[in-house]
Nucleic acid binder design. Structure first.
Length: 481
RNA sequence: GCGGAAGUAGCUCAAUUGGUAGAGCGAUAGCCUUCCAAGCUAUAGGUUGCGGGUUCGACCCUCGUCUUCCGCUCCA
């Protein structure tokens, strides 16, 4: 039974991926060249959906909060940024695999572990040799050292090792068009640092008073060891982050506040609360005082969509140290200077898109009036983020009906995304709109010509009501907010 | 990254022992049609993932490679 359910969920996930491609939501990157692993492109409706989610988040965080402003920092940053943040040293470790146990080790951990079994002088000599090789990036030398010392895998007990490989979390590239003058810089692995380095710029120019937040949406890049599960874990992805700067000592209450606030945002999309849960981090990162994930139940299990972290003053202090610039705030209420503490909310935009698609996708059987069965695939996307809000469908493409439809679109398209369709039977057009997640369809029929009314059909219930033509814009607008 | 499986039209799949690649759906154009897919006609669309090898001849056998899926592994 459990197996069957797992299989069904796997099938559902496959179906969602297929549907996303077939209906123009998400394509694999560079597909005509056989694709690029763990990179995806958004098609017409996928980019619209993604943009709507991004806009909804942006509006919720900035416009709906007096004390949060946005920025748009560059992807390229000064290389020292990543030294200060800990990304350079923390995430570029040589790795080695044991071919028998399939176990992967960080080379330094492996050698250090072995050194612990030696006497003091031998251990020190070994570690000195290792550090020398590490500093020189001599990967072959490191492998030779492991072989010479006959270091074995604790699981398999063998020394059947792969070559030593460098694992780099960050992508690097060259800044400068002439290679000799070029310096190596990184594509940012997170958007947060762009906020931290601009802390004072924003605080001063936007005249912000603590507590206040800075929001940002943007691309980030990470070399994942295993990147899988469609757009859940990509090498290039988009984050929506907000760093909230607070007075030291108030972090607990603000952490609790944002934890609740962010969960409420998710629930405002209208999905079942059962689909969400908090997951507290047991093992905290070196900078964090507390951390919690908001997890969503994807077809492949509960997975992290958003993280809320209490980051202390770690980041600002680090940048203060490396840049030798004061990153402090004078708090007039308590008459004190301090480096603010930070509560971070960080949500993956692509993951949120996948969350919406996963929850929206449904295959339905519909009993017909004559007793036979009908079926449809429908995306129950929350109306406020649906790519197309309204389809306008003339019942036939004759007798002036298309003209009325075109006029209605002209009236509405400034306010929300409309779609015109006159091909095929009306039922078929409804199904096509269901498959794209369009919440409302207006049909122009012959009665429209007589009394200026239209039918408007609801995607989820498939029921219709008749409303005046000149009320359509208002009717839809009210329901997509 | 390792192991296993797979790759034929946009999608789902066919194609005897190796002998010139087909169908349904979808798409497009037109016809029909007065409110919930699967009516009619026509058209487009494939160097069978890619590259070598064996063969008179390869979708089929073989090697490599790329991609995807499943399991393991790593992870801020």
């Amino acid at each position: 039974m459990a197996n069957k359910e797992t299989k069904n969920e796997t099938n559902k996930f496959q179906a969602i991926i297929s549907h996303a491609k077939e209906y123009g939501f998400i394509f694999q990157s560079s597909e005509i060249y056989d694709g690029l692993s763990a990179v995806y492109d958004y098609g017409p409706w996928g980019s619209e959906l993604k943009k709507n989610i991004r806009d909804y988040w942006w509006k919720s965080m900035t416009r709906m909060h007096d004390n949060i402003v946005g920025i748009d920092a560059a992807i390229f940053m000064h290389p020292t940024t990543w030294k200060a943040s800990g990304h350079v040293d923390g995430f570029s470790d040589p790795m080695i695999d044991n071919k028998d146990s399939k176990k992967r080790y960080r080379v330094d951990h492996l050698i250090e572990g072995y050194a612990d079994t030696l006497d003091k002088d031998a251990a020190e000599a070994l570690l000195a040799r290792m550090n020398q090789l590490l500093a020189a990036d001599d990967l072959d030398g490191l492998k030779q050292l492991i072989l010479d010392e006959k270091i074995t895998c604790s699981v398999s007990g063998t020394s059947n090792w792969t070559d030593v490989r460098q694992f780099n979390l960050m992508f690097s590239t060259q800044l400068g068009s002439v290679s000799e003058e070029a310096s190596e810089i990184y594509l940012r692995p997170e958007t947060a640092q762009g906020i931290f380095v601009n802390f004072l710029n924003v605080q001063k120019t936007a005249r912000m008073k603590i507590p206040f937040g800075i929001a940002q949406v943007g691309k980030a890049f990470r070399n994942e060891i295993v990147a899988r599960q469609f757009i859940f874990r990509m090498r290039e992805f988009e984050q929506m982050e907000m760093q909230f700067f607070i007075r030291p000592g108030t972090e607990e209450e603000w952490y609790a506040y944002w934890k609740e606030e962010r969960m409420n945002w998710h629930l405002s999309l209208g999905f079942s609360p059962d689909k969400y849960r908090f997951h507290d981090h047991d093992k905290l990162a070196f900078y964090a005082k507390a951390a919690v994930d908001i997890e969503f139940e994807f077809p492949f299990g509960f997975k992290e969509v958003e993280g809320i972290h209490s980051r202390t003053d770690h980041d600002l202090s680090q940048h203060q140290k490396f840049s030798k610039k004061k990153l402090q705030y004078f708090d007039t209420e308590i008459n004190q200077n301090y480096v603010p503490y930070v509560i971070e909310t960080s949500i993956g935009l692509d993951r949120t898109v996948l969350m919406v698609l996963s929850e929206a996708y449904a295959e339905e059987d519909i009993p017909k009036e004559d007793g036979t069965k009908d079926s449809r695939v429908v995306l129950r996307i929350p109306p406020r983020v649906a790519p197309i809000k309204l389809a306008v469908l003339p019942l036939t493409k004759k007798d002036g009906l298309p003209e009325i439809a075109r006029d209605l679109i002209k009236e509405c398209r400034e306010d929300f995304y409309c779609f015109y369709e006159e091909k095929d039977a009306i039922g078929k057009r409804y199904r096509r709109m269901d498959a794209l997640g369009t919440p409302y369809c207006v049909t122009i029929d012959y009665q429209t010509k007589e009394d200026q009314t239209v039918t408007i059909r609801d995607r989820d219930s498939m029921t219709q009501e008749r409303i005046p033509l000149d009320k359509v814009k208002e009717w839809v607008s009210l329901r997509i907010r």
